[in-house]
Design a protein around this nucleic acid. Structure first.
Lengths: 253, 253
DNA sequence: CATGCATAAATGTGATCACAAAAAAATCAA
DNA sequence: TTGATTTTTTTGTGATCACATTTATGCATG
């Protein structure tokens, strides 16, 4: 594993480059993580050369990584062939959340019969990790561990065909998650994951679906406050970026 | 519009290159159409240079088109970094069909309030076009018009967020559709699209969902005959390709 | 005829360059 | 100072090349 630092002195601690993976794969993971954890603001343009220079690779890996993320819906290809972080309207957000509920309750129900003791204990561990991240006000890790919890359940199914679709929706919501979490401390927080685990333990499909749906609604609920969302759509919301220079690095070479 | 003929003398009549679109976009459309209409068999490897030479472009557009299709799930990236048409197991097919039903009944229900008279008449036209293609035993056009019918309905919604996901599922089923249609003449065929239109006219959500679900089940039903599907998974099924050389052109430069 | 091995061909990856279009900056006129 | 116009820079697209790895081929040996 090589630890990589870009030309601005920013440390990609979470996206180290494995010795076996290709440059393109690494750029893809780094960019995906940046989008997923809300480090790039909607409406921001991502240029090939900017990304290539920031990560110290040629244009080729950057180009292909951008195409992949665009195909997955994480980024948006504008008419002038420039790539930017997609914006989100309240109506669109509502649709995405409905799709999340539809697909994830389905995935959970399908996975239920295949959940083993090991998977169950793994889910408990991931939930605890998320709670820790939440306690120490770490938005990125909270997001990551929450997704890991859900993924762990859904992938219990031997044919998790819906998993890529669900990940695509998570990716679209990525920029919003930080906004949601930045206001999270103001709210009381019921741990729906415990209810999910309980429903799995008792092999209760209906209870599981209810718990999943509640978890999704509440997790995103903080972002649905209209005034915040509209700020976000205009790119005005103060996303409380941990490393503002990272964002500039993405834009400017 | 320029009509393009590759080095094997094969005519891409359905995928002419517009003067405004980029080479990569054209390659993407051509490949997508080839996969969607089942012109490439599962397990077949698609090489960068093979595609580039066939379509008389450089490697660059071919590479990016392959990445896009891989991201969309239309193609599969193997561990050795080669791209191939994905295979389909009975279990996986079952999952994909359940997802289609889940997503498309949802999309139809959400679109229902927004369907205008124009859209309705357009749906009737597309249905008639499909029936014509079916009568003259034209599998490709049958597939295309069927998808156009469904798309016309779902896109009535002002925020068709689920449309890309649905298209992704269609893409995964592409290679199977030809197989399904090649055996279609043996079966009696109830036109579920008429029931769809009727349900839309009467603004009947439940009837619409039933009609959509039936349409999906029956449309794919012919391919679920186990013996055929297993042949398909092994790449042994005679897919009755209209231009076998096209396939070879994709593989070999 | 089958099998293991050395050679040759093909393939994916990554870098660099040229070119045209688009965006930004600078300049000039009112 | 403002607005339009020209110049400069930036950006995406496409082509080509080198390199390492994988795959296919041919050949000799058993």
């Amino acid at each position: 594993m090589t630890k990589t630092v870009n030309q601005y002195g920013i440390n990609f601690s979470a996206i180290e480059r494995s010795d076996t993976e290709t440059a393109q794969e690494w750029v893809y993971r780094a960019l995906r993580y940046a989008v997923m954890s809300g480090q790039v603001q909607p409406g921001m343009a991502l240029t090939i050369r900017g990304i290539a220079n920031m990560l110290c690779v040629s244009a080729m890996p950057a180009r292909e990584a951008l195409w992949r993320l665009t195909s997955e819906g994480a980024l948006h290809l504008k008419a002038n062939r420039r790539v930017e972080v997609p914006t989100m309207s309240p109506a669109k957000l509502s649709e995405v959340l409905q799709l999340r509920i539809l697909l994830e309750t389905h995935a959970a129900e399908r996975a239920l019969p295949y959940v083993t003791e090991e998977i169950l204990s793994q889910m408990a561990i991931l939930n605890e990790l998320q709670n820790e991240a939440l306690r120490r006000q770490d938005p990125e890790q909270t997001i990551i561990q929450n997704q890991a919890f859900h993924r762990c359940l859904y992938e219990a199914h031997p044919n998790p065909v819906s998993m890529p679709l669900i990940e695509g929706l998570w990716l679209q919501l990525g920029p919003l998650h930080r906004l949601a979490l930045s206001n999270m401390e103001d709210h009381y927080f019921t741990d729906r994951h415990v209810e999910v685990i309980k429903a799995v333990e008792t092999q209760n499909p209906f209870g599981l679906k209810v718990a999943i749906e509640s978890d999704i609604r509440e997790g995103a609920g903080y972002a649905t406050q209209t005034e915040l969302l509209e700020q976000y759509a205009r790119g005005e919301a103060p996303l409380d970026l941990p490393e503002g220079e990272f964002v500039e690095g993405l834009l400017k070479q």
